[in-house]
Amino acid sequence: MIKKATYTLSLATGAALLLGACAAPEGGDLTEQADGVEKPASNEITAQSPGKPSAAITLTHKLRNAVGPGQTGVVDVTVADGYDAGAASLTASGGEGVEVIVASALLEYDMSGDDPQSWEILFQADSPGARYINITANVTNAGGGDMVKTFSLRVDIEGDNGVEKADGAAPVIDSENNEVILEAEETIDN
């Protein structure tokens, strides 16, 4: 059953009900929400804006079967748009440790229709844990110019459920004082 609530962004501290569609920032993955992804109590959202301006594209996705490292997985993606004209072009690429099968990496369609689009993305991951397939959606809207929106679709590869971490150097975490220490470039003149 789809979880329902109603969301209203308002001034008052009175209760605001949260829309299932907006439980994730809009344009995110509704299936993730339907799967009941944990939200820490400290980040319970009681009001939320729709997010930064971007193409009016929404995605839902579902991993078709359990998949382990080195195996080919399939993600079923449903694409909906808020336009009645123009062209959409969506490109999939693998995050760290993920390779998207090239033949499945592109979806292009005419947005004049009402029906959502179905898209199968094939991929392989080299290690277990939470990995991401990144989507860039470009919209060329008749008379309206180009807009873009990005998505990261989470796929859980069987094994240790670690989450992909970003590239680059990691800062020092001072857990005692709950601080992230960023080393400065410093010059001292005595």
Binding site: C22, A55, N141
Partner: peptide
């Protein structure tokens, strides 16, 4: 603000 939220774009 009384925005109900949702996907949006300047052209929509």
């Amino acid at each position: 603000s009384d925005s109900p939220g949702g996907s949006h774009s300047p052209s929509a």
